Simulated scan of single mutants.
Amino acid sequence: MTDTRPVLVVTNLNDPTADVVIAELHDRDVPVVRFDSGDFPASLSLEAEITQDGIQGRLETPSRTADLDHVRALYYRRPTGFAFPHLDEQDARFAIAQARYGLGGVIASLECLYVNHPHFIGDAEFKPSGLAAAVKAGFQVPRTLITSSPDAARAFIKAHGAVIYKPLWNPVYQVDGVSCVVEIAEVTAEDIDDRVAGTAHLFQKRVEKTADIRVTVIGPRTFSVRIDSDLLDWRIDYSRLRYTPVPTPPEIELSLHEYMDHFGLHFGAFDFALDANGQWWFLECNPSGQWYWLEPETGLPMLAAMADLLERTT
């Protein structure tokens, strides 16, 4: 019997990764309803009733309708935020809150597979939580300080030598009309001044790495890729990267899935630093990270693995 339940894909209009996943699902005759929660209520409507049988109702876009009690999986990518530009500031703030807790609450309450659940994404995006979970899962984690104290920052740097600064979250800045982010950078004790007291900062002992490793976990499948470059942060210039698929050590495999289970994730993009002794050092896991660009570079069947997961064949 044909499974007619759709996969919901929640993302923005310009998401090439979602595009290829949807195309693959279409090729498999899997129904898909794509929408951006930021389109609510202009071109996305909601009707949901809480009953003894669960949530019933529908989401409607200009071209698709999804029955809320008839969803196979929900692929939560990168939707835009709610906006009510026609309202004054106070009314817009109220409307945004109602949309977040209304539509957002319904989206988070379906009886389906989430890749990933939006609440779990939020939990896993806190770097201190991720680092603590990584230690618990058995990963090697560089010594890390989170502080607003200039004295503590200087003492940490003096104790550990080479130390890097990382933003705890990376909002987009506009500089001369161009979007940019705060880059990871090595810091010295002399770089630290009283401005550190203005907010929280993350400092981490630098791993003397020979390469980086990106591990993409898609359901039960694990794809590890060695990334060679001369960059401290390989994400700042993709043209200087070389990719090599590598096996995932068994102990790393176990820790990956323990980490995923801790946060309730079905997808994760993990970053490791590889040192000269072959040790994998956990840096972070992005529960909404990019992954498809690696498939053309390596030939790894990552798209098929994601479609299998959403189709519920795994």
Rank of each mutant, 00 (worst) to 15 (best):
D3P: 08
R5G: 03
V7P: 07
V7C: 04
V9R: 02
V10G: 03
N12S: 14
N14L: 13
A23L: 12
H26W: 15
H26K: 15
D27I: 10
V30S: 02
F35I: 04
S37T: 08
G38H: 07
G38D: 01
D39S: 15
A42V: 12
S43C: 14
S45A: 14
S45V: 12
E47F: 11
I50P: 05
I50Y: 13
I50L: 15
Q52R: 15
D53V: 05
G54D: 04
E60H: 05
T61K: 03
T65L: 12
D67P: 03
L68G: 05
D69K: 10
H70C: 12
H70N: 15
R72S: 05
A73K: 01
A73E: 12
Y75R: 06
G81I: 07
P85C: 07
H86G: 00
L87M: 14
D88N: 14
R93F: 11
F94V: 14
A95G: 02
A99C: 07
R100V: 02
G102I: 02
L103W: 03
G104I: 01
G104S: 09
V106S: 11
V106L: 05
V106W: 12
V115H: 02
G122Y: 01
F126M: 12
V135N: 04
A137F: 11
G138A: 07
P142M: 12
T144D: 04
T144S: 09
L145F: 06
I146G: 05
T147V: 10
P150I: 10
A152C: 04
I164C: 10
P171M: 03
V172A: 14
Q174F: 06
G177I: 08
G177L: 05
G177A: 11
V181M: 08
A185M: 13
T188I: 05
A189P: 04
A189F: 00
A189V: 08
E190W: 00
R195Y: 00
A200E: 11
H201S: 04
F203M: 07
Q204L: 08
R206G: 01
V207Q: 04
E208D: 15
K209C: 02
A211P: 05
D212F: 01
T216S: 09
P220T: 12
P220H: 03
P220Y: 10
S224V: 13
D228W: 00
D230V: 12
L231T: 09
L231V: 08
Y238D: 04
Y238I: 04
P249W: 13
P250E: 13
E253D: 15
L256G: 07
L256I: 15
Y259P: 05
D261G: 14
D261S: 15
D261R: 15
L265V: 08
G268N: 13
G268L: 10
G278L: 00
G278V: 06
W281H: 15
F282Y: 15
S288C: 13
P296E: 03
P296M: 08
T298A: 09
G299W: 04
M302V: 05
A304H: 06
L310M: 07
T313K: 15
